[in-house]
């Protein structure tokens, strides 16, 4: 405590106000801590519940067998077809969605300053990333599944890509914007073209946060059910042909959990746990690699 002679006499004459300041200061921090704890508690409860319901039903069969119809020997089988299906769907969606989204993001950040196209694109991207995914599913159904004649993997992948693009575009834009302009100037002044500056300096500098953003988009679509329900449809077979109805973990979970059979419902619980585990793993791996790369790049900064 500072000696009273050092204190501003005007302030020290208002002890009640000092008390109020201390109280409100503590109250604000208390509210923040309490909210954080509440969220953590809810998350922990959900995870524990999932673990208790699903963990006992995870077996080797889950990863090796496909769905076996009720009443047949070995039912309910496993979800290997759905795991592979989700993997392929996400892969295809990424191949389409990530480059398109990134290029659009780069346009927004680096090229649109003089164009009338920038602001509307940004706005539309924001609106699109808020569109309910069921809408995307119906759209994919109308535009692809109906003309083709059957549900198919490509339609599902495109629907997922459609969800990814605005997210990836906006993340890329924001992250590329954060790159200091002095890097661009240095590169341009050395005689680099704008494209080379972007590819060699700007993108590598922002790569860590762009990759994190992309992975969040991938994780988001990995858990989507509604757009796949109408586009990829469902399949109980292991398939690698995206022209056919395509299995996915989320749709399989949906069908199993809403069905009447106890053992399939239990399989669905296991599936949910695996899905969350996969997303968790994906994030962890990306974060660790990004951290390693970044720390080498920015060491000492």
């Amino acid at each position: 405590m500072a000696s009273s002679t050092l204190r501003n006499p005007r302030r020290s004459s208002r002890p009640l106000y000092q008390k109020y300041l201390r109280f409100s200061n503590g109250l604000f921090m208390g509210l923040c801590v309490a909210s954080t704890l509440l969220i953590l508690a809810i998350l922990a409860m959900v995870m524990l519940y999932l673990l208790s319901r699903g963990f006992t039903h995870i077996s080797l069969d889950f990863f090796t067998k496909v769905e076996i119809a009720e009443g047949m020997a070995g039912s309910p089988g496993g979800m290997s077809h759905a795991l592979v299906g989700t993997g392929i769907l996400i892969g295809l969606a990424s191949v389409v969605g990530i480059p398109l989204g990134m290029l659009a993001g780069i346009y927004l950040s680096e090229y649109s300053s003089n164009s009338w196209l920038g602001a509307p694109t940004r706005f539309i991207a924001d609106v699109l990333s808020g569109v309910p995914s069921i809408v995307v599913g119906i759209l994919g159904y109308e535009l692809i599944v109906v003309p083709v004649g059957n549900a198919n993997g490509y339609a599902g992948a495109l629907a997922l890509a459609f969800i990814m693009i605005p997210i990836v575009a906006r993340t890329t834009e924001e992250m590329v914007r954060l790159v200091p302009n002095s890097y661009r100037e240095a590169s341009i002044a050395l005689g680099a073209t704008k494209a080379r500056t972007i590819l060699r300096v700007v993108l590598p500098t922002a790569s860590g946060s762009i990759i994190t953003g992309i992975m969040l988009a991938v994780a988001r679509v990995a858990g989507e059910t509604a757009p796949l329900l109408f586009t990829a449809g469902a399949s109980r077979f292991m398939t690698f042909d995206p022209q056919q109805p395509f299995p996915s973990l989320t749709v399989a979970i949906f069908l199993f959990s809403t069905g009447p059979f106890k053992d399939q419902q239990q399989l669905a619980w296991a599936g949910i746990l695996i899905l969350i585990g996969l997303i968790f793993l994906l994030n962890l791996v990306v974060r660790l690699t990004v951290h390693r790369v970044q720390s080498r790049r920015f060491a000492g900064a």
């Binding site: 002095s182 890097y183 100037e185 240095a186 002044a189 500098t205 790049r297 920015f298 900064a301």
Partner: peptide, 9 residues
């Protein structure tokens, strides 16, 4: 430049 601006490489 005024401020040193090495690339993060």
């Amino acid at each position: 430049f005024q401020k040193p601006n090495p690339f993060p490489m």
